[in-house]
Design a binder for these strands. Structure first.
Length: 427
RNA sequence: GGAGAGGUGGCAGAGUGGUCGAAUGUACCUGACUCGAAAUCAGGCGUACUGCAAGGUACCGUGGGUUCGAAUCCCACCCUCUCCGCCA
């Protein structure tokens, strides 16, 4: 959520910056709401002040046993106007909230402007894609030939966009998550977190998934209780740890890592990535979250992105870093780096991690603050990124480390997690 | 599933219709004392909106209602806790 003061004082500038990300701010609607609010709020508060002081007089008169009917008549004279004003003001303030809740974050100045994915800027490339002296297979063909990846059975059990893994491949998947967690905990200084996979609407509002993106979520309706949602990412429960908190300055920075399954309905993505494990309703992800003081967030964002890159490097997976342009960024983000891993079967780089700095956007929605040097509550900045998406990492390993006979070489750093296994083959 | 209790400021905890935005304690900040600290004493200390300022307004789980006036009364909802049952 943006600071409403910024809209009041710099509306045109805000509108311009939002336009770069393809959002058309309805300035006229805002100004109409704002001018009505200002006069209405002033008048309402005058009436309330008068009522409060007259009511106080009534209390004093009655306390002394005197007649208060004259004063009561005075209050009654403005009763209808006050009630009408309060009603209208309530509606206006609600309209403001709804208006603000739908406005995306402002892009950081360093973000390249652009309309779509095509305008993203590649800023780094690591590793050289291997060359193969045989026809490469994709992970679906590889996994099914190994008898360890089975989409047909997953469809029977649950439906489209689910997968079933068995044997060493399932173990490799688990090993990946363990390896990522261990690296971030032992080498990057993160605290491991285990968090709920079901969250309430307030948490999803806090991180920006609600109200705008409800159709992307799996929702569980309950009798006699609020609905719960399956988390689309660990970002939601972990970032919301600090919702409605005023943190002591020494509590920052908070660096947390959390491995969870993620659930996305993928509504509106029919026909995209329907083959294989790239786009699933359920996938595992190791998520990095940092809660930092405002002036630290730019640097923390770089650091966190680097932590995700190191996983790819340890796994010997070629990747590139892309700075998302203004038009391609997520709703809540001020700046996003995507890490894209090389997939030989697709002969292209595909997103495997997305690292974003939200600045105070989520913090304002969450009311997450810390006490600054002046002991005043100030909004924290939030940063998160995948470190990494486990399912897609598995896909990348299968495709990049495949051999002519259809076996898959296990990257050296993962072997200790697989009892020393060097190669995944038919069992 | 059954029964009960409760939601008040950073925390603890008073407050059952009228100077209550809220006692008190604690934490925190400032000052005094001290070589320094502790202890003690004095003062300050919620959030947001609005105003140049003085000040004003709102907020005691959420939303309604009663009233001249609601933290306090009524209704609905949400959440938490305790006991019993069931259960990984």
């Amino acid at each position: 959520m943006l600071d409403i003061q910024l809209l009041r004082t710099n509306l045109d500038n805000v509108a311009e910056r939002l336009a770069t990300r393809g959002f058309k701010l309805d300035c006229a609607a805002f100004q109409a709401l704002e001018s009505e609010r200002k006069t209405l709020q002033t008048r309402t508060q005058e009436l309330q002040a008068a009522r409060n002081s007259l009511s106080k007089q009534i209390g004093m008169l009655k306390g002394k046993g005197e007649d208060a009917s004259a004063v009561m008549a005075q209050v009654a004279a403005h009763k209808d106007e006050l009630e009408a004003n309060e009603l209208r003001l309530g509606e206006l303030l609600k309209a403001f909230d709804a208006f603000l809740a739908m406005i995306p974050n402002l892009p950081h100045d360093s973000v390249p402007s652009g309309k779509s994915e095509a305008d993203n800027v590649e800023t780094k490339r690591w590793g050289t894609p291997r060359s193969y002296d045989f026809a490469v297979k994709d992970h679906v063909d590889l996994g099914e030939a190994l008898g360890q990846l089975d989409f047909a059975t997953a469809v029977k059990i649950a439906g489209a966009r689910f997968s079933l893994m068995k044997g060493p491949l399932a173990r490799l998947h688990r090993a990946l998550a363990q390896f990522m967690l261990d690296t971030h905990i032992d080498q990057h200084g993160y605290t491991e977190v285990y968090a709920p996979y079901l969250v309430n609407a307030a948490s999803l509002f806090g991180t920006g998934q609600l109200p705008k993106f409800e159709e992307d979520l799996f929702k569980l309706l309950r009798d006699d209780a609020e609905p719960l949602y399956l988390i689309p990412t660990a970002e939601v429960p972990v970032t919301n740890i600090v919702r409605d908190e005023i943190l002591a300055p020494e509590a920052l920075p908070m660096k947390m890592v959390c491995h969870t399954p993620c659930f996305r309905s993928e509504a509106g993505s029919y026909g995209r990535d329907t083959r294989g494990m790239i786009r699933q309703h359920q996938f595992d992800k190791v998520e990095l979250v940092q809660i930092v003081a405002a002036e630290e967030s730019l640097e923390a964002h770089e650091e966190l992105t680097r932590h995700a890159e190191i996983i790819l490097e340890k796994l010997e997976l070629p990747y590139r870093r892309v700075t998302l342009c203004t038009g391609d960024m997520g709703f809540s983000s001020a700046k996003t780096y995507d890490l894209e891993v090389w997939l030989p079967a697709q002969n292209t780089y595909r997103e495997i991690s997305s690292c974003s700095n939200f600045e105070s956007f989520q913090a304002r929605r969450m009311q997450a603050r810390y006490r600054n040097e002046k002991n005043k509550p100030e909004l924290v900045h939030t940063i998160n990124g995948s470190g990494l998406a486990v399912g897609r990492t598995l896909v990348a390993i299968m495709e990049n480390f495949q051999n002519a006979d259809g076996s898959i070489t296990v990257p050296a750093v993962l072997r200790p997690y697989l009892g020393g296994l060097e190669k995944i083959q038919v069992v």
